[in-house]
Amino acid sequence: MTVNQRRTKKEFHEYNEYHDRPFGLKWGTAFAMEELVTGIQANEEWALKENQLLEQLLRETIDVRLFESLLYSKEVEIQLNNRDPFGRLVDSVSGFFLGEAYDEYFILEDQKIFWEDVRHIKVKNQEKWFTIDLFEKDSLRKETSSVSNEELTYVVNEDYQSFFDEIY
Rank of each mutant, 00 (worst) to 15 (best):
E127R: 14
L134R: 04
W115C: 03
I62W: 01
K9N: 11
R65C: 05
F31W: 12
F135H: 03
Y160I: 14
Y105T: 04
F163S: 10
N81T: 14
A30L: 09
T131H: 06
G99W: 00
T8F: 06
F114Q: 05
Q79T: 00
E151L: 04
T29H: 08
F106K: 01
F130C: 07
F163W: 10
E60K: 08
N4Y: 13
V155W: 13
Y102I: 05
L152V: 15
E44Y: 15
N51T: 04
L48F: 06
L54E: 04
F114K: 02
E116Q: 15
E136I: 10
T38Y: 05
N149V: 07
L53Q: 13
V90C: 12
I113D: 01
Q111S: 09
R21P: 00
L71T: 05
E17A: 13
E50G: 03
V37M: 15
D133R: 08
V64W: 03
V3K: 12
M33C: 07
W115H: 09
L140W: 10
Y154W: 11
N4K: 14
T144W: 06
E44P: 02
T38L: 12
D165V: 02
E75D: 04
E143I: 10
E104A: 11
E77N: 01
V90T: 14
D91G: 02
L36D: 15
I132Q: 11
P22M: 03
G99E: 02
K112V: 01
S145T: 13
F135V: 08
W27S: 07
T2E: 13
S73F: 11
I40Y: 14
E151I: 02
L108A: 02
P22L: 10
K128W: 09
A42N: 09
K49P: 06
F130R: 11
N81V: 15
L108V: 01
K124F: 05
E151Q: 14
E55Q: 09
L98T: 07
N16G: 02
L98K: 14
T38D: 12
T131G: 12
G95T: 04
R119I: 02
M33F: 04
R141H: 06
I78G: 00
D110A: 03
L48D: 06
